Amino acid sequence: MKIADLKIPGNILLAPMSNVTNLPFRLMCRKYGASLTYSEMISADAVIYENKKTINRGISCEDERPLGIQIFGNSPETMIKAALRIEEIYKPEIIDINFGCPAKTLTKDGCGSALLSSPELIHDIVKELSENLSTPVTAKIRILQDMENTLEIAHLIESAGASAITVHGRTRQQQYSGKANHDYVRKIKQELSIPVIANGDIVDEISAQQTLEYTECDGIMIGRAAMGNPFLFKRISHYLETGELLEYKQCSQRVADIREYFSLLEEHELMHTVHVKAQAQWFTRGMKNGRHVRKNIDVAKNIDEILLSLDRMCKDAN
């Protein structure tokens, strides 16, 4: 896939997720086949006020390039100041604008998916960044109830200079419930000339292939299904390349992955930035006795006890 002049080695992308897509997690997803990874979303206002914790969400390394950094805000002036600062510090390959997050922490301030009700402001933000950055600008949106209104926003984003658009097939009101409507994504792909990336309900090999085939999009973006499961990228990439399901031992793979994840957190001195127990619990989703193990993790006193609970989970699964 190609975005502006950037050639991406594949078309399976990791979605930006708050408190999830830190550097160690992104490195693991890249290792397993993610073609492009995105940072946690970064507040434009926080960058302007030099909030170190927020700015550090863009920390990267050469092993994960290319990197996309996603920002959010509601003012073209603030957004361009923040984007120029991020461009200067991290030199990402892509700067993405969040017009899709439905979380109240964003929408109450008129950011994220709240901007979908202000098409002209979306156009102004994209245009300001596209014209003033040397980095390609992309955007991520959700759909609206009405197809025509959704198409209008997609066209405005393209005309403002965006190099690609990602479409999550749910409305702001749906949050993460119900099914993603890929009819909208398919229609946007048919009408736009820039790359279109499909997002929503891509959870395994079959849904990845079906989404690509139905929407005819340039790529797919995986979000929540990858939480605690970076190996999903390996499974999907293998299936898309060979048409065959990859054989693996789910439990031992999950435990090996969380051990590597913890090791990378230590290596990059980021262990203090995460909620260790919560992230360990993600790695148990869908596993036999997972609920019981999550309870054990919740009362664990240290990482060794967490890993012991996970090891026992695998032993019971065999």
Score class of each variant (00 low, 15 high):
280 A>K: 01
156 L>Q: 11
262 F>N: 01
137 V>Y: 08
93 E>Q: 13
134 S>P: 02
82 A>R: 10
20 V>F: 07
212 L>N: 14
54 T>W: 01
91 K>M: 06
152 E>A: 00
118 S>Y: 11
310 L>A: 10
216 E>Q: 11
274 V>K: 09
82 A>S: 09
168 H>Y: 11
222 I>L: 05
59 I>M: 14
50 E>Y: 06
287 M>T: 03
52 K>A: 02
79 M>C: 13
134 S>L: 02
191 E>G: 06
206 I>C: 04
153 I>A: 06
218 D>W: 11
280 A>F: 03
3 I>S: 09
169 G>Q: 09
294 R>S: 02
156 L>W: 12
299 V>F: 04
247 E>R: 09
292 H>C: 04
130 S>H: 10
121 L>R: 13
162 A>R: 15
263 S>C: 12
21 T>S: 10
181 N>V: 04
265 L>E: 11
23 L>Y: 13
314 C>P: 14
290 G>S: 01
74 N>L: 00
9 P>Y: 10
65 R>C: 06
189 K>T: 09
181 N>E: 06
232 L>R: 01
42 I>R: 00
218 D>S: 07
6 L>R: 14
298 D>C: 06
276 V>L: 06
11 N>F: 12
89 I>K: 11
178 G>S: 00
242 T>K: 05
16 P>V: 10
207 S>V: 13
33 G>W: 09
14 L>N: 05
199 N>Q: 12
192 L>N: 15
97 I>Q: 02
192 L>K: 15
106 L>F: 07
148 E>M: 07
298 D>R: 03
104 K>C: 02
19 N>I: 10
267 E>P: 00
211 T>P: 15
108 K>S: 11
199 N>P: 11
313 M>D: 09
39 S>F: 05
34 A>E: 11
235 R>N: 02
263 S>W: 09
140 K>D: 14
53 K>H: 01
10 G>T: 08
14 L>Q: 05
293 V>Y: 03
57 R>K: 15
103 A>Q: 02
47 V>L: 12
31 K>L: 05
122 I>C: 09
232 L>E: 03
37 T>H: 03
133 L>C: 00
182 H>G: 04
182 H>D: 08
292 H>R: 08
110 G>P: 09
296 N>F: 05
129 L>W: 08
102 P>K: 07
62 E>Q: 11
265 L>Y: 06
310 L>C: 09
51 N>G: 00
186 R>A: 13
76 P>F: 06
52 K>Y: 02
203 V>R: 01
264 L>K: 01
240 L>V: 10
166 T>H: 14
316 D>F: 09
313 M>I: 02
44 A>R: 15
23 L>W: 10
268 H>R: 04
17 M>P: 01
303 I>N: 00
311 D>R: 12
237 S>L: 00
198 A>F: 14
136 P>D: 04
90 Y>Q: 12
182 H>F: 14
230 P>D: 07
27 L>T: 01
271 M>L: 15
42 I>F: 00
137 V>P: 14
211 T>D: 15
45 D>M: 05
265 L>G: 12
160 A>S: 07
165 I>V: 13
140 K>W: 14
277 K>D: 06
88 E>H: 02
252 S>Q: 09
144 L>G: 02
184 Y>K: 05
252 S>L: 05
288 K>H: 05
73 G>M: 10
269 E>P: 00
48 I>N: 09
214 Y>W: 06
34 A>Q: 10
12 I>D: 00
227 M>D: 00
227 M>V: 11
311 D>M: 07
